[in-house]
Design a protein around this nucleic acid. Structure first.
Lengths: 334, 334
DNA sequence: GTGAAAGCGCTAACAT
DNA sequence: ATGTTAGCGCTTTCAC
């Protein structure tokens, strides 16, 4: 049996209240007893029962994270950031993988509710009314990361997707490319899909390259889909010399496709990615990409949630973090 | 305030025990009342307080996972498997990233202890006496995945590293390679490092290629280190035509190095990896590699832990799963 | 400064 | 079949 506060009290020859006090307000108990209690705690390897504590404080000191796809490398860095923040804040982190499935997400909310997490961070997903209602119904505070809601006033941290996409495309244009395509996210389920398309369009228009506006194919988050989408893109617009991919994994898919067709990257076609996941610098060729501060995004979102949980509100809702173009080897002047 | 069992009881006009019964033994309460209770639960979005339950059952229905490096793609698939198993078993999963740091790992054990997880799965790490003592001291059952302990009798699931390495090297030999090098794990902290070296050595000896035995360089888990190690390997043994890398990420590092030196893979040098992480099929060239059943490893380890937690022991300790050579594009006949 | 006792939300044994 | 009640381990008044 795990030792309880009673065991400690007995061993130290004091009452349980005294034991409780040395843990929560040590200065209120005389040194001699305090020391005896501390010894007993040490000796028994006593750990207060967090169920009992939770019952009283109504806090689990645990945060929940809902990610769409844990195999997507983008989230690995984010999780590290969140976890480091959680350590700093004295919280635990419970990670759940929704597989982009509504049912599953909803049932994880139930699980979180039952486990009494103090708050949830929702990564990348759209905030459907269904989710919102459930979260509010469960009275669980939550924030969003790499996403936001236009309809509800929910704290969020992300990058300026429109501006970032604009920068990527502008870079391609300045390299001298005139025939530019894009591999985007399927709009249906994606929060960052539309703004990245808009950034693409704005850059094109601004530089009088509006004829490219239609050169957009969509893929759903994985390498293989981007490979397929690239096939469509190049079949339909064979003279394309540059493509903007809204995710590094897409860029890899595009480059793979091109490679299979014996077209050189960046020799014949330039490709820019998005995210700057760890793999971006390992791929051949190394990816030119829009870097998101992935780790910081995760770190910040945990802090934000903590703020929300403890104070009831956050200072800056809808926070934006800076992106940055990183030029590596997948792009070249035309 | 979150509704309690009392609120439900009041709304349904019954006693709290009846409410408790409809949740734990529905058949013992008459339909009419049961329905009223169910309605009230629905209406209030009532969720039993897991602290109170935990206090009684002394179970948190939560498992803890300790991974060395969550940014290592190897673990992503494993986590998916574990999570799916946890769903099936009705458990939650708490993931912690140790960064291969003893201090951090130990402090996570404390956190798990305090949070009363029902069990822990320890991934890849060695089981130092320090860890073992602490775990036993805390009375937390645990299993190991992609690792095992020779010193203690702890349930584990992994692949047969020695045999797998042997197969990889044998494949290279059968392709006609005579000058074979290896990029291995630094031994200090690695459980799978030594057996993979042994597999390498056994294949070499068996085919009379013992002169390659010394062509081994070590790297510590990341791409960059493998890149460096490859530099050392090829500087010292420039006539090497094939290299066995003990991780796919190492294979990528090696190939990157070779690429930077303008040597063709698989044209001039063949490379085989290990793990078959998701990236292996996305890299250029696609990696020939030893596939581990990563998802299943995770799934199985969670099942094993569950067995240990619920029954107090497991049927087969030190379980092995089958590996498989997957031939793709990074290897070629000599 | 310290102990006794109430109570957090729930389950289970005991009455009825 | 249903209600009453005693804890589970802890914190926190409230007396002393």
């Amino acid at each position: 049996m795990k030792p309880t506060i009673r065991d400690v009290a007995k061993m130290a020859g004091v009452s349980i209240s005294t034991v409780s006090r040395v843990m929560n307000a040590p200065e209120t108990v005389v040194e001699s007893k305090r020391l005896r209690v501390l010894d007993a705690i040490e000796e028994l390897q006593y750990q207060p029962n967090s169920f009992a504590r939770g019952l009283i404080y109504r806090k689990s000191y645990t945060l929940g994270l809902l990610v769409p796809d844990i195999e997507n490398m983008y989230y690995a860095g984010m999780i590290r950031g969140m976890q480091d923040a959680c350590i700093k804040l004295g919280y635990g982190l419970m990670i759940c993988n929704t597989d982009r499935d509504s049912e599953r997400l909803l049932s994880y909310i139930d699980a979180f509710h039952e486990k009494q997490v103090d708050g949830i961070v929702l990564a990348s997903d759209m905030l459907f009314p269904e989710y919102y209602d459930k979260l509010v119904g469960c009275r669980i505070p939550f924030v969003m990361v790499s996403s936001h809601s236009d309809d509800y006033d929910i704290p969020s941290v992300e990058v300026d997707d429109e501006a970032a996409a604009y920068d990527a495309v502008k870079f391609l244009i300045e390299l001298g490319h005139k025939q530019i395509g894009m591999i985007g996210f399927n709009h249906a389920n994606s929060i960052s899909g539309p703004p990245r398309c808009e950034g693409f369009a704005r850059a094109l228009r601004e530089f009088g390259l509006g004829h490219n506006l239609e050169k957009v194919k969509y893929a759903s988050h994985r390498f293989e889909h981007a490979y397929e989408a690239s096939h469509e893109l190049f079949s339909q617009y064979p003279d394309t010399t540059a493509v903007f991919c809204v995710a590094d994994e897409f860029a890899m898919g595009t480059i793979s496709y091109l490679k299979d067709r014996n077209v050189l990257v960046p020799g014949q076609v330039s490709v820019v990615g998005f995210d700057n996941i760890r793999m971006a610098g390992m791929f051949i060729p190394k990816l030119t990409t829009i870097a998101q501060p992935i780790y910081e995004l995760g770190y910040r979102s945990a802090e934000q949630l903590h703020e929300l949980v403890t104070t009831g509100s956050v200072n800056v809702t809808r926070e934006k973090m800076r992106h940055k173009l990183i030029v590596r080897e997948s792009t070249r002047e035309r």
